[in-house]
């Protein structure tokens, strides 16, 4: 008797979401099986990687992270261009850290001006990530949504505290929202229900399940993402059938291990390789948990992940 390999039976499918506009627009999602289970279903749309760009010169990055961008860190538009032209970025993620009221507290107008420059400098899809202060993000993302109307930016994080305001401008000015919840599957579902009730079309929602770095709670994120995918694919949980975004670069590179120099941590090996490998390992695990979009920092880590994707998807 021939051995029959048991198969999971799937009843759901992840929605396909278009990112950006024009020739360089991308589509993610569409999975009909668990991540890379190509023997059980389809994963015809590749997960994508967005390269980080910051709206102000980073001050606490380790040399390994700074080196590839040293010539452009003070100019977000040039930085984005370098990511695309030199490192082949297929997407950009603009991190608006300087808008944080507890930091530089730059105004919505300033943030919108920087965004505008970045949007004009490159033609790949762009994620705009706020400072994670619900009130300030509302103000900033509204202004940006308006100024960049029709560009289909991916804007977030959109939370239970500001989904109405940001959801409304996303509908009005045709952008995609990144629905962000704190590592909790029930809350993730609830926020997507609320966005749907508000009228945000299903084609314009991405899930941010919240991401930690390798060694800093990643297993918790992993299991919530895994459960989100299981509910979406095997329990027909329609409000969870959206692609997932993981903003991992900043999580990895702020860890002690990624920052310590050779002198500070002589037993931890080459500090450049160390950070790159931590970022790549984190990204790899998140892909295995079901991530569709990764926001990453180091070109070498990105290279490793692209190789992995090509290997796993070459069936």
């Amino acid at each position: 008797m021939a051995l029959e390999i048991p198969k999971v039976s799937y009843s759901g499918k992840i929605k396909e979401i278009v990112l950006g506009k024009g020739d360089k627009a991308l589509t993610v999602g569409g999975e009909t099986s668990y991540p890379f289970y190509l023997f059980e279903g389809q994963m015809s749309l590749k997960p994508r990687i967005a390269m980080e760009v910051y709206d102000s010169t980073p001050e606490d990055w380790p040399p390994a992270a700074l080196e590839p961008f040293a010539d452009v860190v003070s100019d977000p538009a040039a930085w984005a261009k370098k990511c695309v032209d030199t490192y082949g970025a297929e997407m950009i993620a603009l991190q608006l850290v300087s808008t944080d009221p507890n930091g530089e507290n730059r105004s919505a107008e300033e943030a919108a001006a920087v965004t505008k420059k970045v949007v004009e400098a490159v033609d790949v899809p762009i994620i705009i990530w706020g400072c994670n202060n619900a009130e300030k993000d509302t103000e900033v993302l509204r202004k940006i949504a308006e100024d960049c109307a029709g560009r289909n930016l991916m804007i977030g994080p959109v939370t239970e505290a500001n989904y109405k305001q940001i959801g409304a401008v996303a509908i009005g000015y045709e952008h995609t929202v990144i629905a962000s919840t704190p590592i909790d599957i029930n809350l993730a579902k609830q926020l997507n229900i609320l966005l749907g009730n508000l009228g945000v079309p299903d084609g314009r929602i991405l899930i941010d399940p919240t991401t930690g770095s390798l060694g800093y709670g990643l297993e918790y994120c992993y299991s919530v993402m895994e459960r989100i995918r299981m509910a979406a694919l095997t329990q027909e949980d329609e409000r969870l059938q959206f692609p997932m975004v993981c903003n991992l670069g900043k999580e990895v590179w702020k860890t002690k291990e990624a920052k310590q120099s050779r002198e500070e941590a002589p037993k931890l090996g080459d500090p450049v390789k160390r950070g790159v490998l931590m970022e790549a390992a984190t990204a790899q695990l998140l892909l295995l948990a079901g991530a569709d979009i990764l926001i990453m920092r180091h070109p070498e880590a990105i290279g490793l992940i692209k190789d992995m994707l090509n290997d796993l998807l070459a069936a």
Partner: peptide
Amino acid sequence: TLYSHSWLTV
């Protein structure tokens, strides 16, 4: 069905 606060209305 996965719980959410809106379970009665969806």
